[in-house]
């Protein structure tokens, strides 16, 4: 089996702020991490490899330093990695991103056919959850989103059985291969690298592909290939209320409680 896992390098979302004067993102000093959902996707692939034997290729798109997330993936058991890196890819929205990734997967398939593509449910910087379904649609693969686990692979019939997390329960589905699977956090615990594997991975060479290495229609990439544009970014606006603040150091507990209870009652909520 050949498994491809899409991994994105993201800024640690909790530390990104807007410069209130310039209206631009302040990313300086913000650490980059591997998108946590993608690591759960990798773990799901690694468990398949442990059980059935498989080759795992990690695929990422981003700046040169995104090789870090590929090396991290190799440190816990991925076999190989490709970083898609070119200025022509910069500014891609989800439509352009899914185009570039799907073209790279087509190139990988030429020498080594792919059975399953894994991705995280979403990335924590954009929170869109659009790239997975986008890649599946472009490649004509089956799509299994919000996957909690794979229950079986029938290589004879070329189908997998998987569990999906949904509102109100869990759906068990059968999907023809090849399939794209997006993975939720609840699926598994991501393993740690052993020290020797960690050291080996740091020394490993990551193949970098620029736009010349695979077939691409450049107008579909980057800013030019992105139908959505950002008009502006701004810090979240404060709510327009004048709160009534009471302090237990100044006002009695009963008085505060009664004031609040009356206000709630007056608003017709009870």
């Amino acid at each position: 089996m050949h498994l491809v896992v899409c991994v994105k390098q993201v800024p640690d979302a909790t530390e990104v702020k807007v410069d209130p004067v310039k209206g631009t993102l302040v990313r300086q000093g913000v650490p980059s991490i591997a998108n946590p959902y993608d690591m759960h996707a990798l773990e799901m692939a690694l468990q398949l490899k442990d059980e059935h034997g498989a080759k795992i290729t990690v695929l990422s798109m981003g700046p040169p330093q995104a090789t870090d997330v590929i090396k991290r993936s190799i440190s816990i058991g991925a076999d190989d990695g490709r970083l898609l890196c070119d200025v022509a890819f910069a500014g891609s929205d989800t439509l352009a991103t899914s185009y570039i990734l799907s073209q790279a997967i087509k190139e990988i398939e030429k020498t080594d056919p792919v059975d399953i593509v894994f991705a995280g449910k979403m990335a924590i910087d954009g929170d869109t959850a659009q790239v997975g379904p986008g890649i599946a649609t472009r490649l004509g693969y089956s799509l299994v989103t919000y996957c909690l686990g794979i229950d079986g692979i029938d290589t004879g019939r070329s189908v997998i059985k998987a569990r999906r997390q949904l509102e109100g329960g869990c759906e068990v589905v059968e999907a023809d291969l090849p399939v794209l699977i997006t993975v939720v956090k609840e699926a598994n615990e991501v393993r740690y690298a052993s020290l020797p594997d960690l050291i080996k991975s740091i020394r490993s060479d990551v193949t970098v592909w620029n736009k010349e290495f695979f077939e691409l229609d450049i107008p579909q990439c980057g800013l030019k290939g992105s139908p959505t544009q950002v008009k502006k970014i701004f810090p979240p606006p404060p709510k327009d209320v004048t709160p009534e603040i009471m302090n237990t150091g100044e006002t009695g507990l009963d008085e505060i409680a009664n004031t609040v209870a009356e206000a709630v009652s007056k608003a017709g909520i009870l």
Binding site: T94, L95, Q130, P133, T137, Y146, S226, P227
Partner: peptide
């Protein structure tokens, strides 16, 4: 769950923009 899955596929088929 349904809308996020479906909208991504539909927007990709139509090659149009989608904001989540």
């Amino acid at each position: 769950y349904l809308g996020r899955d479906l909208s991504g596929a539909v927007a990709t088929h139509l090659k149009t923009g989608l904001t989540a």
